[in-house]
Amino acid sequence: MSEHVHAAATELGPSVSPFKLISTLSVFGAVAGLLIVVVFQATQPAVLRNQAAATAAAITEVLPGGARYQTLFEHDGKLVAEVPAGVDTVPLEKVYTAFDTANERLGYAIIGTEPGFVDNIKLIFGYDAGAKQVLGMLVIEQKETPGLGDKIVKDTAFVNGFTRVATPLRGVKIGAGTGASGEIDMITGATISSRITIGIINHQLERLQPLIEAYEKAGGA
């Protein structure tokens, strides 16, 4: 045993002072940190631009024909167009609203995220508060099973089923619908993913509908 230890020690050669080890790694760490900060600063504007462009494209998709879009923030239990000075808007929940050329409100675009079958499903939907109707739905992020759960994106009949339907939505099996407004035909083989998709919209509306009504009553300011 001790012979092994001795042999291993001689193979390693003369030992290097701890100071040299620590200083070498410190220099490496410092240079690496500096490089990462430089690259972060250089790429961050493009990353934010991409995110903003993706959100804008999704809003246009569910609220088409808007001439002007406005962002509302959920602050202090209310929807407000402008938050008091000093409040950071990044963590606040946002609702987007669109107006046509005659400055008539087209509706609201609401984003919702909930755990899906595999990972979070994130979607955006358009909502007409006057008619209490969902205008359209677009899944932004999902990792559902290819060929089954991902039909919530690829099945056009399912996606188009969200156009102008009364709320609250109710998922029904294909053929089992009664023809009532608010029924969405669920996808065969993707029942869980369909149910979650419908659930996200209902849950968001349950919470946000009173806020939107209060916002409109207050003059939409």
Partner: peptide, 13 residues
């Protein structure tokens, strides 16, 4: 790079 910390240094790089 001293031999003793070579793997750590590689990982940092």
């Amino acid at each position: 790079i001293p031999n003793e910390i070579r793997i750590t240094a590689y990982i940092v790089i």
